[in-house]
Design a protein around this nucleic acid. Structure first.
Lengths: 143, 143
DNA sequence: GCAGTCGTAACGACTATTGTTACGACTGAA
DNA sequence: TTCAGTCGTAACAATAGTCGTTACGACTGC
């Protein structure tokens, strides 16, 4: 399937909230964020719900409700965001179990799993290098 | 998405061909490989066609037809295989263009693209570390 | 109260992956 | 020269994941 855009949307949303708060507002609504992201507010709420459970964002309910960051942008890495949205595996093993009576069919699963674990570890190391503060800086410099 | 299993299947197929050739056979048929992978021969042929175009495998047609490796297992890395099967991106940007009148909406694309390029480079470096010879060694040791 | 927003379920459109059938193209061997 | 075995590829179906949308109850400041 197509790669998913959740990390992009989540980083966008959190960065937007961070900037909005720095400009003096207390909370941001899912509708405001959705306008910047150009999507439906429910998509934003769904994502922020996960980020909330992971302790990256918080919400206030009732009138004057909205979202706020739970930590400063500089204290949130893209790895934090990535883990929060429960990523699926980058590579999958066989859909149907390969023939266990064949030497290759029997041993290929563990062999590839070891490689894939290494790949995902490298991916996490790479995402951990960038904080949302870095992202915001790039965003503002581009303007 | 579901992650895709093409790299797994391709590595399995090439490793199988390599082992089969070492045991004295000239070519392997897609049906034999499919039996080990536990899938349909067409799936194997589709994949091997791409690996062939990338110069990793070759086929002989007609009677007594089948597939052979174009290089030794030790000379094929998982990165070679990965590139051969034309991988999609690991992460996607927004499906709909974000609001360009918003600072964040305008700058987030390039910012995330830079990060994602770094991630994919790390992924490629990691895959380049393992050759199919390594995979075969692991497979045989597991038996 | 009530208006505004969250939280979440339910559903549909769209797309990618994988399996399957089908069939023409090719070639070694009888 | 024919034929059997295999490749190469198109076409289609089943399945699953993503994303957008509607709907509605829950919560709370005014």
């Amino acid at each position: 399937m197509s790669a998913n855009s959740r990390l992009t949307i989540a980083a966008h949303a959190l960065t937007w909230i961070g900037l909005y708060q720095r400009r003096g507002h207390e909370v941001a609504t899912s509708e405001q964020i959705a306008t910047s992201v150009n999507t439906n507010p429910v998509v934003i709420r769904r994502l922020l719900a996960k980020l909330g459970k992971a302790g990256l964002a918080g919400s206030r309910r009732g009138a004057g409700a909205g979202w706020m960051l739970a930590r400063d942008l500089a204290a949130i890495t893209l790895l934090d965001v990535h883990q929060a949205i429960e990523p699926g595996p980058v590579f999958a093993l066989h859909r149907a179990t390969p023939n266990p009576e064949c030497v290759v069919g029997h041993g290929i699963g563990p062999a590839m799993t070891a490689v894939y674990d290494g790949v995902e570890a490298a991916l996490r190391r790479e995402l951990a290098k960038t904080t949302l503060e870095d992202v915001l800086r790039d965003v503002l410099q581009a303007a």
